[in-house]
Design a protein around this nucleic acid. Structure first.
Lengths: 337, 337
DNA sequence: TTGTACGCGTTATCAA
DNA sequence: TTGATAACGCGTACAA
């Protein structure tokens, strides 16, 4: 690998002069600079960021920790973050925790060894366990969509209460009065928030929530949302609801599926609203009415926040709003159209 | 930040001794080692990989370049690669090219500056343009699913010809004789391969491919596969096929959707087979019969290959086979059951 | 305008 | 068993 010393030797100058010429220092004679630049190109010189980092005490590197990459939510979020990072000259170290506290801990430690300038931790469900690692962390840390509250760190989050409100208001507006909720116990905090939005909105409309409408299905594999939808549907039907608001699109799709198998027409006999607006939402039958989260924006805002912290600019916690996406899975209840 | 020098000072030894004690050098007196380890823990010492890298001329870092993160195929692939990397103590620099040759070029350059130990480039459609950058690259390079042939670099690829054969053989086996193909022109090489598998298999069964069965739909947005499915379906129906093999699941889902809207029963009136086995394939209606690609394995094999190259072990190009996933979107044609 | 010398944190070589 | 010194590649006070 060619270094500035090699160039210096070829040019018959000191490596200092080369260093300066390469960064366009005006104190170097124009023709010297010219000659050095030429030489650098010819020799195929590529600056060594490692050496630069050691010297500058900065790596222009951000560590991102996500539970899993193969998750439609994480995916968009990553894309938003990567975009900002790349534009600002930062690289991302991507690691997965698989919701394993030990692994989470180890990854954060690795980030520290590698001297990342900042860290973004996504959807940590094991906040307590990795807290130790995080507290020792020197670099700025931004949390996304965390399951821990009252964090001492900046947080970017989605307004889940408001988003759920949007969905339920939509159903109310169509005339539904008996509206079910199917939740997911493996995302406790988010689940509580979406439930809260659901319950609040119903109460504000003067409707008392019947406990039988609210289902948090027990499933074998804690990630099997399709199954959650199936199980939840059974109980909702038993409770006689005319519409169901689901914790997320996967669950809603489970409901849709199960309805299809049972010969229940959606939205004619039962309305369903999901959450997330994953890709599949637009091409299931019927296309799913859902709440879209600004995921790319969540990622990009988180990245902008770390970068701001790195530059010692002040940042505030942030709460991003959601948007209702009306498709075809919700309609007025029977006899109300 | 605590360095080995700080520890040395506290322990009253040289930084060399600390360095050795930390890495368990047996030449250091056990009690000295003990004392240093203790101290390192107390002071919260975290080794600086940057300094280590500068010295060792290795970064334990792999650069991964993908066209986009928000792609179900890329997602799984990344997960496979990350898993292997993490287990072997490597970190991944993740960057997106968005199919922009300029950006691809710049990312590869960044990887070089950062002295990654290896590079994985995925689905480069602009092979020619970034070739220059790649040739100068000192680090080992592995290509995944490239659209360029005869690369001078190791390649991991999926057996698209064989995979397509699986799908078509399945349809033939059920008794179909008029089988359509809907392709995607924005992935030219892969498209040709899947088409080849389709055509070969039909010919081997003694069936002459009617040109009207083969559709490569023109769509406005080059990424809109759902639309491809819609357009393709129209033409296939006009050509009187009883089954359709689609370039991928998204297209197949487009077909399914369009059938649903037109009141065509799948699989009773028309069979459809996709490719990829994306998540949605299992929960659309009817569940999609498709060809599963070993994507995680593709990612992990690619990573294993770069790591082997880094360790100067020999590697061979590799071709991974596919697997037919039988669900419910394909059945014997009318009057054949 | 250019060069000398040092420091960034670590490991390796050689000497004691 | 331990320590002094150099080296990795670069940037920058300070000196010339």
């Amino acid at each position: 690998m060619i270094t500035i010393k090699d160039i210096a030797r070829s040019a018959g100058v000191s490596h200092t002069t080369v260093s300066r010429a390469l960064r366009g220092d005006t104190r170097i004679a124009p023709d010297t600079t010219e000659r050095i630049l030429q030489l650098a190109g010819d020799l195929g010189y590529i600056p060594n960021s490692i050496a630069q980092s050691l010297n500058a005490q900065r790596t222009f590197t951000i560590g991102m920790l996500v539970p899993s990459i193969a998750d439609p939510v994480v995916m968009d979020l990553l894309e938003g973050a990567e975009d900002v990072a790349q534009n600002r000259g930062y690289c991302i170290f991507l690691s997965t925790s698989r919701n394993d506290p030990a692994r989470e801990f180890s990854v954060v430690h690795t980030f520290q060894r590698r001297r990342v300038d900042g860290v973004i931790v996504t959807a940590s469900r094991s906040g307590i366990n990795c807290r130790l690692a995080l507290e020792r962390l020197q670099a700025p840390l931004v949390l996304i969509d965390t399951e821990e509250m009252h964090e001492p760190h900046p947080v970017v989050d989605i307004d889940n209460v408001g988003g759920a409100g949007l969905a339920v208001a939509h159903l109310l507006h169509m005339g539904h009065r008996r509206i079910g909720y199917i939740g997911a116990t493996n995302r406790p905090l988010t689940n509580v928030r979406r439930y809260t939005g659901y319950a609040q909105t119903l109460e504000q409309a003067g409707i008392k929530v019947d406990p039988r409408w609210v289902i948090n299905p027990e499933v074998e594999k804690s990630e099997d949302d399709i199954e959650r939808g199936r199980v939840g549907l059974e109980q909702c039907l038993a409770a006689g609801v005319t519409a169901i608001f689901c914790f997320n699109d996967q669950i809603a799709i489970g409901v849709l599926n199960s309805c299809y198998c049972k010969g229940i027409a959606v939205p004619q006999q039962l309305s369903t609203v999901g959450y997330d607006d994953i890709r599949a939402a637009s091409y299931v039958n019927p296309p799913l009415t859902t709440v879209r989260q600004p995921l790319k924006r969540l990622g990009s805002r988180a990245m902008e926040m770390v970068l701001a912290l790195i530059d010692n600019k002040p940042v505030q916690n942030e709460m991003l709003g959601c948007e209702l996406v009306v498709r075809a899975s919700a309609a007025p209840p029977l006899g109300m159209s």
